[in-house]
Design a protein around this nucleic acid. Sequence first.
DNA 1: TTGAAAGCGCTAACAT
DNA 2: ATGTTAGCGCTTTCAA
Lengths: 353, 353
Amino acid sequence: MDEDDKVISINKDVTPPKRPLTLKDVSIASGVSEMTVSRVLRNRGDVSDATRKKVLQAAKSLGYVPNKIAGALASSRVNLVAVIIPSLSNMVFPEVLTGISEILDDTPLQAVVGVTNYSPEKEEEVLFEMLSWRPSGVILAGLEHSEASRAMLQAAGVPVVEIMDTDGQAIDSVVGISHRRAGREMARHIVKNGYRQIGFLGTKMPMDHRARKRFEGFTEALAREGIEVVDQVFYEGGSGLAKGREMTERILERSPDLDFLYYSNDMIGAGGMLYLLDQGIDVPGQIGLAGFNGSDILEGFSVKLATMDAGRRDIGREAARIVAGRTDGSITEPGQRVELEPTLQPGDTLKRR
Amino acid sequence: MDEDDKVISINKDVTPPKRPLTLKDVSIASGVSEMTVSRVLRNRGDVSDATRKKVLQAAKSLGYVPNKIAGALASSRVNLVAVIIPSLSNMVFPEVLTGISEILDDTPLQAVVGVTNYSPEKEEEVLFEMLSWRPSGVILAGLEHSEASRAMLQAAGVPVVEIMDTDGQAIDSVVGISHRRAGREMARHIVKNGYRQIGFLGTKMPMDHRARKRFEGFTEALAREGIEVVDQVFYEGGSGLAKGREMTERILERSPDLDFLYYSNDMIGAGGMLYLLDQGIDVPGQIGLAGFNGSDILEGFSVKLATMDAGRRDIGREAARIVAGRTDGSITEPGQRVELEPTLQPGDTLKRR
DNA sequence: TTGAAAGCGCTAACAT
DNA sequence: ATGTTAGCGCTTTCAA
């Protein structure tokens, strides 16, 4: 940052901090044993209304905030659920988080988020860090993890839910869609609508297993129809509209005969769509388009990009339900498996007029 | 969710969990005292290379994960920073988080995120919950908090950094921009470019203090030029492109003479822009437009919406620097104040041709 | 309905 | 360079 753009000064009106209060302080203030105070604060066991009132009053007026660290150590119960995702800038994951919170809000559990930036090493670090807080469960994206990560998850002794993807071997429970299948289905729709010269635009695969699986399913289904992907472009870095424009220009320069572009996410797909419309190209007459995710943003364009909804919110909800259920005992079986259906949203860009 | 879209089954290949390991287990396995094991694992004090190697080896082969709960209780040191933000679906906040993580990644500190959904009550809850884990610092959005929240923050005895906004009384440190000023500056630019019939489109104000302050600064600067905002539309709920389209249609129906639309964020601004372009309206000849935030997404459109960059990433970085500095002792003064400059990005929609 | 004692797993402080 | 002791603030368990 430019130093010129920054004004630093000192705010003088701040009061000095105090020592954090303990149960004992409340105990003294209310004239009740620490144990009873503890019971009141947790709504446990039988406490007379009189003492309850006294204690609550004392705790409130002191501004007592319980120390969960001590509580967790003593009870070996931690109401945290570790949620590990690759990124926050891809809106998919905030949406999954929303689904998780919706469910956990009705339980004593609390999500804590860690971000891996699509790096297995970083995932390992984040996982280690989070497990060291002894969470009640772990929800993490993907089925591909380092050996060490898998070992940690096995040994953690808490429910583990891998989300987003169901194509592979799970450690414990899984909630997601089959990305292979999503790719296959999209391929079938494209072919059924008469497109034949098909291009693919997506992330560099080693970073994104789900995009790779979609691509594999896609090419496989095309192959069955005797069709091959004509050209492909891959990119690294943040997926934005601008990236989609750029890639689309590039692929069409190289392969002007393409009549369909399949994008690995809606953002770059929408960017490509804007580019083509700006160029006055007939979409979907001359070129058809499809993205992936079912992103809300697509509703904002006058032409609706075809996409496939990955049910992100539902994935979050189902995963949270499993963790909550395993934690409160309402689910006893480990190894739950929930496979959701990817649903096509044909929009305007998949049907030849 | 539709039950038909969900396949549930049980994955049988899961191994049973074990009891979590303790320092003692490593101590026994390595034939060294618990204390020494602890020292090795924290790289503290003098330990011979031989024992260090033995211990590390034992810890690794056992798959030991330290218990931070016990560690934190014993040392009364918690390497967590509570970060409290209104929402994850407004990309502004993930960007702030990115800035925070960039700085904290070079320290022992770890951000933990809580989301308030713009509700002061929820903020209070989240804050209470997070403070009960005794974090090393708190970063939270905005200067407006409930009395109880302010009291908790005062009493927490840890550095508190309020971010995004500098217009108001801070509890301890602040990092942000003046939204009043951002509004004023935008007003001046608009007037300077010859627009006179100005409309405002934004969130319902009680929810969003920063949008309100921008609006106040905006109308104030206009008033100084003898201009009044001709019409206004407010909305609730997620800010998307579609919302912007809708609101723009509405305001223009009601006030067809408007020659400028000021949006309270880039998303609705971009939606409005798309709508106007679709309608064949001359932007910025007939109608000028501006949003707020400096969002990356604007780069993806063929016409660039005017906006004002709020420096979100920098805000995160500066806030994290303060917490890190206060924690490691390199900053001793509380009440740091960092005011960033909002910078105009004029784009294509603010200049009458 | 309330209280007292023990201990959760680790680290600070003090030996050796 | 390594070990011992005490105790962090709470909850579990048992007693009254």
